[in-house]
Design a protein around this nucleic acid. Structure first.
Length: 955
RNA sequence: GCUCUGGUGGUGGAAUGGUAGACACGAGGGACUUAAAAUCCCUUGCCCGCAAGGGCGUGUGGGUUCAAGUCCCACCCGGAGUACCA
């Protein structure tokens, strides 16, 4: 019987569904294991071959764990809110919910064909009210909590209110936007509006004025990558930096815990490094510098190099700094204002793209160095960022490369205060770059001169502390997360405004459902799309959403018009899978108590600094509330590499527009134009010329210069995109080769974690392998298995002997495949299966003792063929519940070792020797070998012998 | 600029300091076939050589080691991310 993959795969997919083979129960005597994929955004383009790469890897692991006896949670869902559906809605009027539903159905169809072991009864969609109810609920909790640095956790706002009423800010150490000090009397004297304003300073979800890219023409805020040269990508309208009142999450309160938590998780060092860099913890000092003209006033700077304070030759403020207006002298006013206006309107992207262009302006004002009493000029420049530290720096051009570039550009003095050796001082005028390293000794530095850099840092901090002008401090580059979007297709905020005060709707009234709108665009007055909703006001008495016309600001109030960003719904979705249908809680105590956290998480590296930070923050907050039981959500994590496209090209003659020249025949690339050609009409770089002529009307009359009867295309690795005609759809491959082949091939392509170009050129080989694998079983199943097992007496000895060899192959395979899965080297396990199959075929193995465990080994990789063969071998229950075979080392023992013999580290020949040889035996054998005479004359200088590995003779 | 990551045959890749190129693809040759498909067998890193054999070889240049694709230093090139982070 032939390997009829289409029939087999369909049959078992249906059977698995019917039998509920992948249904998972919470709470079982078995050990639990949670395998999660980053859920996809269901785009209109459908699934491409890059998505399944990670899903297949995690499915292999999930199935492997199940075969080892674990109760495995392996769910899937959709990150269903997002911009593309909304953009499509604006263009066509089609409701994003409809588009999203269609796309989800398409994704599901594609996923189903690949044979994943997902428990679909646990599916979540972030855009469904019963799901986003809990996103909104979490937001309300964030709103109702603040971060107490002494308790080192989130605490209820109500306890903060009590504290303020009793003792004001006395003894309070809490995360906040602006530091505040007030007494209990002051607090109690304030009206509700003022009190609420103060509380907003502490809430973990808070409103603040944030600079955003505002495009008046589009009536919306744009992301950095939607702005180029100050114009919107869409439409080319002007974009300005504007302060807007936005919801933010005080993720910075958790910065230290986010750094510390990395110690507990099993992630790659590079990923941890990315996160550490993103959080950007840096130790340094805050120092107050008084103004020269008004010594009563001073401003705060942050520096990581307090030891270099004797080398300060100028100060720099960011263009947003509030001090600029006050200190700029009249003669510099015009120039400074012009610069500030220009710099403020530049996007962050622009500022960063032009690193090497130095710009800035002198304010005319001076500060006093508190340690030297020197008068130093104050400049303004965009290289100092408002969002980091205090937005002001002390510039030490000799020891900071950016300060150095600035000083050179504006001819400011440069003074060396650190040297590698105590007397190795040179003239900075001769330098080509600054000396940034934190090594060496302080020079020209008053009381720290001669100290090591590290000691000088400490000495300066102690000194400024003593003088009361500064202190040691820690800064993080992590910023609070802006949580408002001026969009339609997202979670509504459960917030209404009572005389300007933000109030959350009662938790019992959740979810607050996304209202219908007449248009998905912003309103004419620049309000977000929810401004179009007629029924979008909160009736406090009746606790329901009512018509906007009923707003009286007494009992009916306006609702928030912004919606939440994409990361809102994806930050805690892994909890919901544990208990997806719970209507009374986010998830039950029992469910989280059983599953704990995600054991193994697979997803793209592009989420290294976004999703993975937000999720960890979300989890820690829920941990503080006593809901999550683990501080870290994702115990082990791997990133699947990006799949790049492999484009094909045809070459059109510049002299003749209908003539296409095969790649090998082109003499000069300048004579031809390379044109992208659809990879679906190219096979192993050979163009199907007939299909090419049909492909597009302009190629109908195409003529070809062929080499050996073939048109050979060129190729290049590029991004996978429609415009380059290099998109590969998994369905086509499943139809042509079957899901098992696709699964194996995606793994065979290379290490899961590495980026690689997609190329179907090798898929035939994997498909051939499955055919061979099938044949290995088909041969003996046709010959009727039982007879193969119990051969008559005359053959027993022969069968036993060949069986021993086959068992050795089996156990080698068990060992290798198990090890490979454990270290996610899935490409090499596929090779191992190929080797085993070739060897067993050659041995004509017919032993059930060998072939049955082998079927179980391949289940994670190729579940369909495995289930079919399992049943053909006489089983009635699913192979998914079989037992993972265990390697028996007795079959792996080798009697002889093939020793490579090296002379001076160069391999010259090999020699077969008994495994228990010692160095003397091996050396004697080598000396006796005829090949040695060429290399060995006289006694060896030295012999290195590594038992069972190698012998190296130094002559 | 910064961060991460990669660089091995014609291609994808293998090799946990110990025989570089496993396993595949492609290519070439052959068997089977009326033919094709399918299948099977052989060859296939580069150079010299009829061969035996030898030399070279993991981006480049150094270094450590009996031994380096693997470890260290410097550099070159590609990919991804990015918030000039004081």
């Amino acid at each position: 019987m032939d390997y009829n993959y289409n029939e087999i795969e369909q049959k078992w997919q249906e059977w698995w569904r019917k039998e509920g083979v992948y249904h998972v129960e919470t709470g079982s005597a078995k050990p639990h294991y949670y395998v999660l994929d980053m859920f996809p955004y269901p785009s209109g383009a459908g699934l491409h071959v890059g998505h399944p790469l990670g899903y297949i890897a995690s499915d292999i692991y999930a199935r492997y764990k199940r075969l080892q006896g674990f109760n495995v949670l392996h769910p899937m869902g959709y990150d269903a809110y997002g911009l593309p559906a909304e953009q499509y809605a604006i263009q066509t009027g089609q409701h994003p919910a409809i588009t999203t539903e269609q796309n989800i159905n398409r994704y599901r169809e594609q996923l189903d064909k690949i044979g994943f072991s997902f428990d679909w009864s646990r599916e979540v969609r972030t855009c469904e009210p019963k799901y986003y109810k809990w996103t909104q609920w979490t937001f309300i909790q964030l709103f109702k909590h603040y971060y107490d640095n002494n308790a080192n956790k989130a605490l209820p706002i109500s306890s903060l209110v009590e504290r303020f009423a009793k003792q004001g800010t006395e003894g309070l150490d809490a995360a906040c936007t602006e530091p505040m000090t007030f007494t209990a009397d002051e607090w109690n004297s304030w009206d509700e509006v003022k009190q609420q304003q103060v509380l907003m300073n502490y809430r973990l979800a808070y409103l603040a004025d944030i600079p955003v890219n505002w495009c008046a023409e589009l009536g919306t805020v744009l992301a950095n990558d939607e702005v180029v040269n100050g114009l919107s990508v869409r439409g080319g309208y002007p974009v300005e930096r504007k302060l807007m009142r936005q919801w933010s999450l005080r993720i910075t309160a958790y910065a230290q815990r986010l750094v510390d938590g990395l110690e507990q998780v099993d992630w790659t060092d590079s990923l941890k490094e990315i996160q550490r860099n993103w959080i950007g913890r840096s130790e340094g000092a805050a120092v107050w510098f008084p103004l020269a003209d008004n010594k009563e006033h001073s401003f705060e700077i942050f520096t990581t190099r307090p030891d270099t304070i004797f080398g300060v030759t100028f100060m720099v403020l960011c263009p947003e700094h509030e001090l600029i207006d006050q200190i700029t002298t009249p003669e510099h006013k015009a120039e400074v204002e012009a610069y500030v206006t220009w710099a403020k309107n530049r996007s962050e992207r622009e500022r960063q793209a032009e690193v090497k262009k130095v710009s800035g302006v002198f304010t005319g004002a001076y500060a006093i160095n508190p340690l030297t009493n020197e008068k130093i000029p104050i400049w303004v420049s965009e290289y100092v960022l408002a969002g980091y530290g205090t937005g002001a720096i002390m510039a030490v051009p000799a020891h900071d490369s950016r300060d150095f570039a600035f000083a050179r550009h504006f001819n400011l003095p440069i003074r060396q205060v650190v040297a590698l050796e105590k007397d190795a001082v040179s003239d900075p005028a001769t330098w080509t770059e600054s000396m940034d390293a934190k090594t060496g000794y302080s020079v020209n530095s008053g009381f720290v001169t001669g100290m090591k850099v590290k000691d000088a840092m400490k000495a300066v901090i102690d000194k400024i502390d003593e003088m009361g002008i500064g202190h040691k401090t820690i800064n993080y580059r992590l910023r609070d997360a802006i949580f408002s979007r001026q969009r339609y297709w997202g979670e509504p905020f459960p917030v209404y405004y009572k005389n300007g005060i933000a109030c959350t709707i009662p938790e019992e009234c959740l979810p607050l459902e996304l209202p219908e709108v007449s248009e998905f665009k912003p309103t004419a007055t620049g309000e977000p799309p929810l401004g179009h909703a007629q029924k979008w006001a909160w009736d406090e008495q009746n606790r329901c959403v009512v018509e906007k016309s009923k707003i009286d600001n007494k009992t009916v109030f306006p609702l928030e018009l912004s919606t939440m960003p994409g990361f809102a719904g994806s930050s805690g979705y892994y909890f919901r899978y544990m208990d997806p249908h719970n209507d009374s809680a986010y998830f039950s105590k029992e469910a989280v108590g059983y599953w704990q956290n995600v054991d193994f998480y697979v997803g793209g590296a592009e989420h290294a600094s976004g999703h993975l930070i937000y999720s960890r923050f979300w989890n820690k907050f829920l941990f503080d509330l006593g809901m999550a039981v683990k501080e870290e959500p994702f115990q082990k994590l791997i990133n699947q590499g990006m799949i790049q496209g492999r484009s094909n090209f045809v070459y059109r003659s510049k002299a003749d527009n209908n003539l296409f020249i095969s790649k090998g025949l082109i003499k000069d690339m300048n004579d031809v134009t390379a044109i992208h050609v659809d990879i679906n009409i190219v096979d192993n770089d050979v163009l199907d010329v007939e299909r090419f002529r049909e492909w597009r009307p302009e190629f109908k009359e195409a003529r070809f210069e062929l080499e050996e009867g073939k048109y050979i295309c060129g190729w290049e690795v590029e991004k996978m995109s429609k415009s380059m005609f290099n998109v590969q759809n998994p369905d086509d491959l499943v139809a042509r080769y079957g899901a098992d082949t696709l699964r194996l091939y995606e793994m065979f392509l290379g290490p899961v974690e590495q980026a690689k170009p997609w190329d179907t050129n090798g898929i035939e080989g994997v498909h051939r392998f499955l055919k061979k694998f099938w044949k290995l079983y088909d041969n003996c199943l046709n010959a009727s298995m039982p007879e193969c097992l119990s051969a008559d007496a005359a053959n027993t000895q022969i069968i036993k002997q060949s069986n021993n060899q086959a068992l050795k192959v089996l156990h080698q395979t068990i060992k290798k495949v198990t090890d490979d899965i454990e270290r996610f080297s899935l490409n090499t396990s596929v090779s191992t299966f190929m080797i085993a199959t070739n060897q067993l075929t050659e041995m004509k193995c017919v032993s059930r003792e060998v072939l049955e465990p082998l079927v179980v080994l391949i289940v994670p990789f190729a579940p369909h063929i495995a289930e079919e063969l399992w049943h053909q071998l006489g089983h009635e229950t699913s192979v998914c519940d079989a037992q993972w075979p265990v390697c028996d080392p007795q079959y792996l023992i080798e009697d002889t070792v093939k020793y490579p013999v090296q002379f001076n580290g160069k391999m010259r020949f090999t020699i077969d020797l008994p495994a228990d040889c010692n160095q003397a035996d091996v050396l004697a054998a080598v000396k006796a070998a005829p090949e040695s005479s060429k290399w060995l004359t006289g006694e060896p200088k030295k012999v290195i012998f590594v038992p069972k590995k190698i012998i190296n003779i130094v002559v």
